[in-house]
């Protein structure tokens, strides 16, 4: 398996690992059966009662999975940190792969679900804060495990 230096760096030194005890949103993608599972926790900083302008104040994750899955989660967490919710909702899995200088083809689908897991956490936050209207527009994880 040929991983880029960036993938190996994020795999060996993952950023933002952990959990947030009173998280505003929690999102999970994948499952242990397929070999990759990641859970994200976010703290949201509200702005002018407009969820679009609210920012990810803190982000943490835990991952069970291969080197790519761990690197993807780490990179996605870095990319989402400090961004507005609408910016994160607009992010795609390809953005993460690109920032990692690419992923092996076999890993593009099975392990590259960091963005969706974070979007699941945002969806969770929006649902909890009564914004079902926006939450329902977020695709998130294809087979979300809640």
């Amino acid at each position: 398996m040929q991983y880029s230096e960036k993938v190996m760096d994020h795999f060996m030194n993952p950023r933002n690992v952990g959990e947030i005890e009173k998280a505003d949103g929690v999102g999970t993608c994948g499952n242990p059966v397929c070999g990759d599972l990641m859970t994200f926790y976010i703290k949201v900083e509200p702005r002018n009662h407009d969820p679009h302008l609210a920012r990810i104040a803190e982000i943490r994750f835990k991952t069970f999975g291969c080197g790519a899955a761990i690197a993807v989660a780490s990179m996605a967490s870095e990319m989402a940190q400090g961004k507005t919710l609408s910016e994160v909702i607009a992010m795609s899995r390809d953005d993460v792969a690109c920032q990692l200088d690419g992923l092996p083809p076999a890993k593009m689908h099975c392990s590259n679900m960091g963005v969706q897991a974070i979007q699941e956490a945002i969806k969770d936050y929006l649902t909890k804060t009564g914004r079902h209207d926006i939450a329902s527009t977020i695709k998130g994880c294809p087979r979300a495990v809640h």
């Binding site: 398996m1 991983y3 190996m8 795999f11 070999g35 990759d36 069970f64 999975g65 291969c66 080197g67 899955a69 761990i70």
Partner: peptide
């Protein structure tokens, strides 16, 4: 834990 990450 997953095997590939241990191998790496």
């Amino acid at each position: 834990v997953e095997g590939e990450s241990m191998l790496l």
